[in-house]
Structure formats: structure tokens, C-alpha cells
Design a binder for these strands. Structure first.
Ligand code: FES
Ligand code: FES
Lengths: 153, 153
DNA sequence: ACTAATTGGACCGAAACAGTACTGTTTCAT
DNA sequence: ATGAAACAGTACTGTTTCGGTCCAATTAGT
């Protein structure tokens, strides 16, 4: 269905909320604040901590805090942290493709990958809480990336 | 991992190859031509036929042919035909989200959805077969376009 | 030093996915 | 009319990934 995992969904919510807090915040608090089940938010934060998106403080009086301001964390970063690398292809890196030599368009997939990554990188967590950016996206979405120039001909 | 299903991968390959043939082409022929296992390519074509992406000709001397020229079929169309609708959110339509009322950023997800859909719609199957773009990609493909704090596998 | 609070990492069940096989229906060639 | 070729649809099975839960390691405070 090409949907990002629910964990990633929750991660974005948790991070945005975390960015609005002062100091460190614990999993239970974040859970109550967002409505996400406690075990789930705990797991999400754990993963994000290993990826360096959030800083964890262990022990009593511990908790999590954002490693970077909300504006500098892109959706792509969160997805990568939770779901792993963004490679739509299944072919480019893994190599477990049966075709490979016969399909002929192996390299072209990078086109798609770049497009996706570009789109995902242009949205930050700050945009997710800020309603003013909705209009700005309209101009940002112009398909003027690096699509084949003569491909449209 | 945010990857499109392998079926979709195969679908793109099959469609591009199909667009380079004259008249109708059978599944076995397409299988040999692409290197994709016969049963799989058959399944993919079947799905694409129900979605109207390809036209099927039944009976002896039958086969498949593209419903539209390659230039008019976008990657997004193929993904939607195989994997279903592109909704990254899991929240907007399904409604099986535990947070919903407390998360507060439900509407903002459309931002992400639009970005993805736009990126995917701007690439056509014709772009995938065009090898002149391959070289161009080498120069234009930014090595890292988003911050990867510690992308250790 | 002890205790309580909190994160870290491992484990397990469930669901979706990829692939395969079979049977039926349609059409062309003989 | 008959037989073969090719698509259509359904059902089944093995595998992988995802979502959720549980227990162990770590630290602050008393
Ligand atoms: S390498 Fe996987 S389809 Fe070409
Ligand atoms: S509706 Fe699902 S996280 Fe907000």
C-alpha cells in the first residue's frame, strides 16, 4: 500500500510534541500527552535514540530530549531512523532481483529514489505543526527537480 | 523500509518492455524478455489489466498491450494499480489511529502525501527507459541530500 | 549502599506479502 | 466443429516484516 509504518507515524507525533517541551521528558508523560500507547511510544523513542534523533538520559529523573530543533529534522530523517533506508527499488542495493541483467532499467530507479527523498527531505517536523506552510508547499512541489529534460518530448 | 513491493518493481519493468513491442505480447514472451519468472509476470499483468493500465486480448493469439503510451503512464499510476492507494499516513483515511484527537497534527499529513504523490506522478515510464538520463543522473545526483546522523546499518 | 525511576535490548505473536498452483473462460486456427 | 493457446480468477502456502510485550542494565536521589 506504500504507507509508512504506524511506528513512523507515531514517531513524528512524539517528536513534534517533544519539541514543544522543556528539558527532558519521559515516555509515560509523552504517552499521556499524545495519546499513543505507552509501550509503543517507548519503543519509538528507543529507536530514535539509537539513531541520534533524540538524546536519552538514563536512570531516575531521566527522559528524552530532541537532538536538533524541530526545524532541522526532516520527515526523511524520521522515516530513515524508524523504517531504515529509503530505497524504493528492492534492486539497487539488495541484489536479490531475478531480472537484474535483463531488465535493463536498473539504473533508472535512482531517479525515483531521488525524487522521493527530495520530497521527503523538504518537509521538516516544524512544518508538521505549523499550519502556515501549507501554502508554501504548492510552490515547492514544482516538478522542476532533475527529471529528464528531453523525456517529455 | 519504505520500499515499494517487488511486484510493483516487476510491473514497471514489464510495462516498459511491453511498450517497446508491437501489437500484443504474451506473458511467456514478456517473461523471457525481462527475466522475471513466468508466474509472477502473469500475475502482475493480470492485476494491471483489471486496473486498466494494460489491455488484454484473450484466447489464442492473445496477449497484452499498453492502454496508453509510455509517456502518459506515471510511476504513481503503476504503484496505485499494484499496491493500492498511496497514503503514507495510516491516519487520514483508515481512522484506526489511537491518537487522533490528541496528536493535533492530523491535517498536516496531507502535506506529506501531496509531496510524495507529486514526486511520483512527475516520473513516467518513458523516463525509466531513457538511458540518456543515466549520465545526467551521475552529475545531478547529490550524494547526500538529507542529514543522516548515523546511518549505520 | 540501597531504592526507585527510567532507558536499553531481546523476544514473540500476528498480519501482510510474494510466490505458486489450479481451474475456468474466451478466442483463433484448423 | 474441434482443439489448442492464452487470459481470468481463486485459493493456498511459506516467508518476511511489523507491532506489541517483557525482562535486564543504568543512573539519580536518599
Ligand atoms: S534489477 Fe530488479 S527489476 Fe531490474
Ligand atoms: S491521527 Fe494518527 S497520529 Fe494523529
Amino acid at each position: 500500500m506504500l504507507k509508512l509504518s504506524k511506528l513512523t507515524d507515531y514517531a513524528v507525533v512524539a517528536l513534534v510534541r517533544l519539541g514543544q517541551k522543556e528539558g527532558v521528558t519521559t515516555s509515560p508523560v509523552l504517552s499521556r500527552s499524545t495519546g499513543i500507547p505507552e509501550p509503543t511510544v517507548a519503543k519509538v523513542l528507543k529507536i530514535l535514540a539509537t539513531q541520534g534523533v533524540v538524546i536519552s538520559q538514563r536512570g531516575a529523573r531521566g527522559g528524552y530530549r530532541l537532538a536538533s530543533p524541530l526545524e532541522e529534522i526532516s520527515i526523511a530523517t524520521v522515516i530513515q531512523a524508524i523504517d531504515g533506508p529509503i530505497s524504493l527499488t528492492t534492486c539497487v542495493d539488495g541484489g536479490d532481483c531475478d531480472a537484474r541483467s535483463t531488465c535493463g532499467l536498473g539504473e533508472q530507479w535512482d531517479l525515483v529514489n531521488s525524487a522521493i527523498r527530495n520530497a521527503l527531505s523538504s518537509i521538516t517536523l516544524a512544518d508538521m505543526k505549523n499550519h502556515t506552510v501549507t501554502d508554501r508547499l504548492e510552490t515547492m512541489n514544482a516538478p522542476t527537480m532533475f527529471i529528464a529534460p528531453e523525456a517529455t518530448a
